[in-house]
């Protein structure tokens, strides 16, 4: 092997030496687990529909149900195993958002219920709320600017 004389050469060499993630296997697992979670959501949705519940409420029921299942599996110390296997398959659906709130809550319990559980709950999910809510506000404002005919300004 050639001598390494710069940080750039070292970085290129390290890239070659470092094993890559098994991306095909990971994508396959992410696909079917993620698909299954969404399909489960759809089944809950269909059940709601047959009971005559309106669409918006049905979607809400689906979210709450999946969040509950995710929190339950996290509390049983099972969700991390699913996550390790499925990667984005369990992270990207709303289950991943729930897990990212539940797992720090459990982890930081040792620092108490206020500054531990209460404060640390959002260490992973906090940014999601910050960016999600901020984006929605900007979108609302843009909507006012570009669709002024259809709405009434205060």
């Amino acid at each position: 092997m050639k001598p390494i004389n710069s940080k750039e050469e070292y970085a290129t060499y390290v890239d070659q030496k470092t094993p890559n993630s098994p991306i095909l296997k990971n994508c396959f697992n992410a696909f079917w687990v993620g698909g299954l979670i969404c399909a489960l959501g759809q089944i809950i949705f269909e059940i709601c529909k047959t009971r005559g519940i309106d669409e918006t409420t049905s979607y809400t029921i689906v979210s709450i149900s999946l969040i509950f299942i995710s929190a339950f599996l996290t509390a049983l110390n099972i969700f991390n195993k699913i996550g390790k296997f499925a990667g984005a398959g369990s992270l990207v659906p709303i289950t991943g958002f729930a897990n990212s709130i539940v797992s720090p809550a459990m982890e930081y319990k040792s620092e108490g219920y206020v500054m531990g559980v209460g404060a640390k709950m959002f260490t992973v999910a906090g940014p999601v709320l910050v960016y999600g809510i901020s984006t929605s506000i900007i979108i609302g404002i843009l909507y006012i600017i570009f669709n002024t005919q259809s709405i009434t300004l205060i």
Partner: peptide, 11 residues
Amino acid sequence: LGGIICVIGQI
């Protein structure tokens, strides 16, 4: 569709 969105995340 759920599967596809998750695969994008995995990539």
